[in-house]
Design a binder for these strands. Structure first.
Length: 563
RNA sequence: GCGCCUGUAGCUCAGUUGGAUAGAGCAACGGACUUCUAAUCCGUGUGCCAGGGGUUCGACUCCCUUCAGGCGCACCA
């Protein structure tokens, strides 16, 4: 039963307002003692030309006793509803247990496909901490959409094309160490790439050589292509090791190179629509009507640019997947680029341009280190993950030295802690990465949530078989009711996360659940409680574990069984 | 110069179509383990919500403006 909807139905029958509209207005009061749902009467006041508190009072008097409502009372301009706790508790626990990992599902996405372009590292460049945001926000959004019934196409738009490959071929021929390339491909490719830039400062001829190699690559020279393919394959192999740790998968690795033969059509379309304008030797689309700088589509030397490829990619995705939404998870530094891209699509007459979405995020900053590839001074994601696991291992030795599979727990907890720090706040903010905060497992943290699950599971193991039935009417404490309310609202948070493209809504919600369970846990015995209470609390514990596990999965964090 | 983002407690941050006394975590201090994993729980307090105007019955929220920081502003991606 959807309690919110039921209450909305009651309100709707009393006032002249659609149930949907009532649902939108309804809130959860700031304090539990004010009720479980609140309906603000301020909007009605305008229509009815009556004071909000009068309306609330009149409505409160009209609300009749109802199976799911204990009472309704007016408080200022609010009409507050108190649910019949018994009915609500029983229904919610039952629903969670029945639906299992499907709990929180919503049919909003049925029959719709979302394409999501995320992670998208550059071939032959290290996968550094800056790539974490796109990878993990995209990975999480993908799982959230899927939970809501959408079909999702996960696209890794690799940076596998461009003049840097000319440089790389040049550098490869001059300085590569084949042994090192086998062992640590990206490391070696980075080394020679950095060396290229150092040498090029004193030897401008290198730049020309690189351009020549890139031309060969474009012209289909066999040797050049073979090298490029090797760089690409070696890179993907390394990336996949990292993705495996983060539980991220892709349906497509169609990167920039995939669209090189699909740009001609785009340019023809732009020509047909007379959108291309000559400017300083280059060809641009004028976007001044949108108050945007012009979008350069063809360079003065006649070659294409990334926007050209992105245009081709968007059209390809529409044709191939017929997306409901076409999402790009890329840093906010690229806001202008995407704004231009979407506006050009609009000018081209594609009505689906409105379905293209840029999900931006802030920069990852280190207090003292820089993140420039050219200087070779990067913080590798692998290093961060490994260090987190190591630090977690040390903590396990200290807290739970008898743990059986320490490595497994250390991996799940350590990596979970890193992911959590990336998904706990608003995307727009820059992340200042500090080990101190990431490895602090007290309070709001991945390990805090995981630990709650582990404690719950520990109890369930000790209890043995979960009793088939339980009488939930014995769950009468505030701690229990508050906890169950949070379980009941889980689906709303998943939906909100999807609508706002903000995984942190889920992160915060499951943290709230963990907090509420820990409070319940410390105040109420489970295994030692009287039989009927014990059974009901075991069911509740199982329900909490289910929801936490589902929630963590949605933010790409694994749940250990022991820690 | 123009555009976008950010500015809330000592620190890191929630606070979403304007609404109830502006909330969490960390840090600090004090308490709770013969009892289900103390990676837990309980208690103690601090805010000219960056400043100034405006709209409104009501503004952290909307508008204008100033300041501070970040990121962009065509032949890299």
């Amino acid at each position: 039963m959807d309690f919110k909807k039921e209450v909305a139905g009651i309100i709707s029958s009393l006032v002249d307002m659609e149930v949907e509209k009532v649902m939108e207005l309804m809130e959860v009061p700031p304090h539990a003692n004010m009720g479980d749902y609140a309906f603000p009467c301020f909007q009605l006041a305008k229509v009815m030309r009556k004071a909000p508190n009068m309306i609330a009072a009149e409505l409160a008097a009209k609300v009749q006793t109802h199976a799911i409502i204990e009472k309704a009372e007016a408080a200022g301009g609010y009409l507050n509803f108190f649910l019949n706790k018994n009915v609500f508790i029983g229904d919610t626990i039952k629903r969670v247990l029945e639906q299992g990992e499907k709990y929180g599902y919503n049919s909003m996405g049925e029959g719709k496909t979302i394409t999501i372009d995320f992670s998208s590292p550059n071939v032959a460049k290290p996968f550094h901490i800056g790539h974490m945001s796109s990878t993990i926000i995209g990975g999480s959004m993908e799982k959230i959409f899927r939970h809501l019934g959408f079909k999702v196409e996960r696209i890794n738009h690799l940076g596998d094309y461009g003049t840097q490959f000319g440089k790389l071929i040049s550098a490869y021929k001059r300085w590569v160490d084949h042994e090192a390339l086998e062992k640590e491909p990206i490391n070696e490719l980075l080394r020679i790439y950095v060396k290229f830039h150092e040498e090029a400062e004193n030897n401008p001829e290198l730049e020309n050589e690189a351009r020549a190699y890139f031309k060969q690559l474009e012209d289909g020279d066999k040797e050049a292509i073979a090298l490029w393919e090797r760089f690409r394959a070696l890179s993907i192999k390394e990336f996949e090791q990292t993705y495996k740790k983060l539980h991220i998968e892709f349906d497509s690795y169609a990167g920039e190179s995939f669209y090189t033969d699909k740009m001609g059509e785009i340019i023809d379309m732009l020509e047909d629509k007379k959108l291309l304008v000559e400017s300083n030797g280059a060809r641009i689309v004028d976007l001044s009507e949108f108050n945007l700088p012009p979008c350069l589509v063809i360079k003065s030397d006649g070659t294409t640019i990334y926007v050209t490829r992105d245009l081709a990619a968007a059209l390809y995705r529409k044709r191939t997947y017929d997306f409901h939404k076409n999402i790009y998870v890329v840093g906010t530094t690229q806001s202008l680029h995407f704004s231009q891209l979407f506006h050009v699509l609009k000018l081209m007459g594609f009505e689906w341009a409105k379905d293209c979405v840029h999900i931006g995020f802030g920069l990852v900053k280190f207090p003292d280190r820089k993140l420039s590839t050219r200087k070779g001074d990067v913080v590798l994601l692998e290093e961060v993950l490994d260090e987190a696991v190591q630090r977690t291992m040390a903590l396990i030795e200290q807290k739970n030295p008898d743990l059986k599979d320490k490595e497994d727990a250390a991996k799940k907890v350590g990596i979970g802690a890193v992911i959590y720090t990336f998904l706990k706040n608003n995307r727009d903010r820059d992340i200042v990465f500090s080990w101190e905060d990431t490895i602090n497992f007290d309070g709001d943290s991945g390990p805090y949530v995981q630990y709650t699950y582990v404690r719950g599971k520990s109890i369930l193991r000790r209890a043995g078989q979960l009793p088939e039935t339980a009488d939930y009417s014995v769950l009468t404490s505030d701690d229990e009711f508050n906890l169950i309310k949070l379980l009941g609202a889980f689906g709303d948070s998943v939906k909100e996360a999807a609508e706002r493209y903000e995984p942190f809504v889920v992160t915060r919600h499951i943290t709230e659940i963990a907090k509420a369970y820990n409070k319940f846990y410390i105040n109420h015995p489970i295994l030692n409680a009287e039989e009927s209470i014990k059974n009901a609390r075991l069911h509740l514990t199982q329900a909490v574990c289910n929801v936490i596990k589902t929630g963590l999965k949605l933010i790409c964090i694994e749940t250990p069984e022991y820690m």
